[in-house]
Nucleic acid binder design. Structure first.
Lengths: 194, 194
DNA sequence: ATTACAAACATACAGCTTGTCTGGATATTA
DNA sequence: TAATATCCAGACAAGCTGTATGTTTGTAAT
C-alpha cells in the first residue's frame, strides 16, 4: 500500500466537488434543465473530469441521490436520538415519521428524491436504493410493532411501502398544510392498532 | 358559423394522431427517451405539425396526461356502475380504490401518470390536473363518509391526498403483490372508522 | 534519479435533439 | 374568383450529450 494518498485524495476531492455542485443545480433547476457544462463550471473542473468519474449524467444524479438519502437518514437518526424515548412501537412509528417530514424540509431534497429520482433512475432502482436506506428502518419499525401485537398483522413490506408513500406525499405538501397532514397520518397509523 | 367543418376536422384528426402516437411512445420508452421525430413519424406527419399544435414537447406530454386521466376516470366510472352497489360510504371508498387499481393496470399508464408526469410537468401542475379528475371523486367519497359519520373527522383534502398517494404506490407494485396491497389498504381505511 | 507506466483530467469532435423560421398547400370568407 | 387565414412541411441554428484523443500529474521500478 505504502503512502499513496495524494492520488486518492485528489480523486475524492473532485468527485466531491462534482456531486456537491450537481446537488445544488439539480435541487434548483431539476435534472432535465441542468446541463453538464453548468455542473462542471460550478465544480471548477471540465466535462472530462465528469465523464472520467461517472458513466453519464444519470450516474452522477444517482450518486447525488445516494448521498441525499444518506444525509436524510443521518438527520432522522440524530433527531431520534435527541428526542425523548417514549416507548411504544406505535409512538415510535409516528415519531419516525415526524423526523422524516422535518428532514425532508431541506431545500431541494423533495425534488431530488421524490419528484425526479423515479423518472430518471426508474422505479426499480429507486426502490432498491430506498430499501437500503429509509425503507429499511421503516420496515423494522413496522415489524416490531406487528410482533409486539401493537398493530394489526398485515403484510409487512406492502404496509411499509404504503406508509412510505403517505409520508412522501405529506412531504410534498405546502408548508402551511403540514400540520393537517401530520394529524391525518397519525390518525391513519392509530387506526392500525389492534 | 356555416358549415366550416372540414378544417376543424382536419385539425382535430392530426391532433389526435399526434397525441395517440405520443401516448404509445411515452408509455413504452418514457418521456425523456422519446424524441419528437419518432412521434411525428408514428403519427404520419412532420415536426411542423407538432409545433403548430403544441408549444413544445412538454405541452404534448401534458395533452397525453389529460387524455390518460380522462380515460382512467371513464374506466373507473364504468366499473363502478357495473358493480353491485353495496351501500355504505366506507365500502364505496374501498370499491373506488379497487376500480382505480384495476384501471391503472393499463399498459404504460402508470409510467405516464405516476412516474413521468410529476418530473415533466411539475408537482403543482400535476396536482391541478389531478384535482380536476381522480382526486375530485376521491374527495367527494371521503367527504360523504365524514359527513355520514362513518369515518373520523379529519382534514378533507389532506386525507384524500394521502389515500391517493397510497393508491398510486399500490398501483406501482408488482402484479403479484397487488393482493397484499389491496388487503393492507382496506385495513388502513377500515381503521379510519369511528 | 530516470524511465515506464497508470491514473486523472482537459480539449476537440460528431451526432442528435429541440425549437424557430420561412414557404407552400389547403380551406374559408368576401 | 380573389383575398386571407389556417394548417402543415422542410430547412436552419443553437445547444447538449457522450466519446475519443491528447496532456498533465502522480506512482513504481530499476
Amino acid at each position: 500500500m505504502s503512502v499513496r494518498r495524494r492520488q486518492e485524495d485528489r480523486r475524492a476531492a473532485t468527485r466531491r466537488n462534482l456531486v456537491a455542485a450537481a446537488r445544488n443545480l439539480f435541487a434548483q433547476k431539476g435534472y432535465a434543465a441542468t446541463t453538464t457544462p453548468e455542473v462542471v463550471q460550478a465544480a471548477g473542473v471540465t466535462r472530462g473530469a465528469l465523464y472520467h468519474h461517472f458513466a453519464d449524467k444519470a450516474a452522477l444524479f444517482s450518486a447525488v441521490v445516494e448521498e441525499e438519502h444518506a444525509l436524510l437518514a443521518l438527520t432522522i437518526h440524530q433527531a431520534a436520538e435527541a428526542g425523548e424515548d417514549e416507548p411504544g412501537p406505535v409512538k415510535s412509528l409516528i415519531r419516525g415519521g415526524e423526523g422524516f417530514l422535518a428532514a425532508m424540509q431541506e431545500e431541494g431534497r423533495r425534488r431530488i428524491l421524490i419528484v425526479d429520482a423515479p423518472a430518471v433512475l426508474g422505479r426499480a432502482r429507486v426502490d432498491e436504493i430506498d430499501a437500503r436506506h429509509g425503507l429499511h428502518t421503516l420496515v423494522e419499525g413496522v415489524g416490531t410493532a406487528i410482533e409486539a401485537g401493537a398493530i394489526k398483522n398485515l403484510p409487512l413490506l406492502p404496509l411499509a411501502h404504503l406508509l412510505s408513500a403517505m409520508f412522501d406525499r405529506a412531504a410534498l405538501a405546502p408548508a402551511e398544510d403540514l400540520g393537517a397532514y401530520r394529524k391525518t397520518i397519525k390518525a391513519l397509523i392509530r387506526g392500525l392498532r389492534t
